[in-house]
Amino acid sequence: MSGNGTERFVTTLGEIPAGEGRTFEIDGKRVAIFHTRAGEVFAIDAMCPHRGGPMADGLVGDATVLCPLHAWKFDLRTGNAITGLCSINAYPTRLDDKNHILLKI
């Protein structure tokens, strides 16, 4: 997991429907943020390391996401590849009590 920077406010939980992801641009860097049905939030690089698939369009199940192009599967908590050849960067993310999504990058 990368991200040693300062924690910053990205958006509110309501902007991302449960079980889906959306792409954000933060200081020129594109990050996919997911809101799982269990109410957790996660952030990984927006593009798949395989052939650049848009990760935010992927299917989410528990804390995993499937790339929409060729179904590589990643662990949202760590970015580790579950199927596929290499992992993706994951960034520490949390929700505060106002349902704001905070991200360290």
Binding site: F9, T11, E15, P17, R22, F24, E25, P54
Partner: peptide, 13 residues
């Protein structure tokens, strides 16, 4: 009514 359904990129608030 799905939020940001067709947005390929969202800005940070």
């Amino acid at each position: 009514q799905v939020p940001n359904e067709f947005s390929s990129l969202l800005r940070v608030i």
